[in-house]
Amino acid sequence: MGADERGQDAGAPGPTGAPPGPAGVAAPAGREHVAPGGGDHLFRMELVISRVLQIGVLVSAAVVAIGLLLLLIRGHSGYPRQGFPTTLAGVAAGVGQARPYAIIATGLLLLILTPVLRVAVGLVAFVLERDSTFVTVTGYVLAVLILSFFLGRSGW
């Protein structure tokens, strides 16, 4: 099940020529009702990205579920007392040793990244539209999202 979804995820922007791939750049096919602000590029990109997000949520939920099952089967989180990894390096190391909490944390991190991905793609759409005001707007939002990770890490 997990492998199936992963395959779709990888296939979406890939070379299959299926609808999702070229949608962002292709000529508008069905322009019945243009999205607010007139950004057709933006609307199509958003539609594609929200599908990718949906798949992203399914994949991360699957990873979380695998970790949870592993936890239930083994009856141990893989960490002493009530500990769990709170850094990317810690999570990666734990996944290497197949510790249940590290696998769950990976799924949760993937989940947190899905909205960040949406903003990143929005930025690309505004660049394609040459809308410099909104490139700044989206760039700022993306910067805040990335910064928040480091702010917590810095001990603040």
Binding site: L113, T114, P115, S148, F149, L151, G152, R153
Partner: peptide
């Protein structure tokens, strides 16, 4: 997502 990274850390 803007506070989730902070929460995680």
């Amino acid at each position: 997502a803007a506070s989730a990274g902070y929460y995680f850390a």
